[in-house]
């Protein structure tokens, strides 16, 4: 059992983190998160609905919060895919980007992943700050406030993901491993 734990911890520490400067790092004030392939990035881009951009299926307001949003970078016309906002709380970027649908903004954050995870793969983007051209910077941290408004009955102690009714329902049904409650019990007895 101890050997398995040591192997697990070794694997968790095995991914190198590199604070690299990249083509769009100049002027960035993004904070390091020690991510794989990390590079700071500050650039101007148009906020788009990714599904619309690729397929031509274009509902109003970039899907009004339902869809993943992307960034068409002004400098090179590349579609950059944002995966994360600035909160260290398992929160994505689309909610923070939605108010800027169709607009050109400046974004500041971190690019991560890429070749170090999968050869030929582009890096994903984590947004830390955003502003309309010429406007004031605002932090990309609106997700949890939006969640609290949508889940008024889920108030309580602890982070949102411990109280989210959809998640707690899934865990009550299929357990933490997703294999059922009996599998959870057997795992806990074996591992802890």
């Amino acid at each position: 059992m101890m050997l398995r734990k040591i192997i697990a911890i070794t694997c968790l520490l095995a991914v190198p983190a590199h604070a690299e400067e990249g083509a769009f790092s100049e002027g960035s004030k993004a904070k390091s998160w020690n991510l794989t392939g990390q590079e700071k990035a500050l650039f101007s881009a148009k906020v788009v609905d990714v599904l619309c951009e690729l397929t031509g299926d274009c509902p109003a307001q970039c899907g009004a919060g339902k869809r993943q949003l992307g960034l068409i970078r002004v400098a090179d016309d590349a579609l950059v895919f944002p995966a994360k906002n600035g909160q260290p709380l398992f929160t994505g970027a689309a909610t923070d980007l939605l108010p800027y649908c169709g607009k050109t903004v400046d974004v500041d954050g971190l690019l991560t992943g890429g070749d170090e995870i999968r050869a030929g793969s582009a890096k994903l983007f984590q947004i830390q700050r955003i502003r309309e051209a010429g406007g004031e910077w605002t932090k990309a941290n609106k997700w949890t406030k939006d969640w609290a408004k949508k889940n008024p009955d889920a108030k309580g102690k602890g982070p949102w993901f411990r109280r989210d009714p959809r998640i707690t329902k899934e865990i009550e049904k299929d357990g933490y491993l997703g294999l059922g409650l009996a599998a959870d019990k057997a795992f806990i007895k074996d591992w802890y």
Binding site: A8, L35, I171
Partner: peptide
Amino acid sequence: YFSGVMGGPESVVGTAHHTC
């Protein structure tokens, strides 16, 4: 999977990472 924030890619798939 891509950021390495929780460790290597093999550790953030399947049952180990299901709840996260």
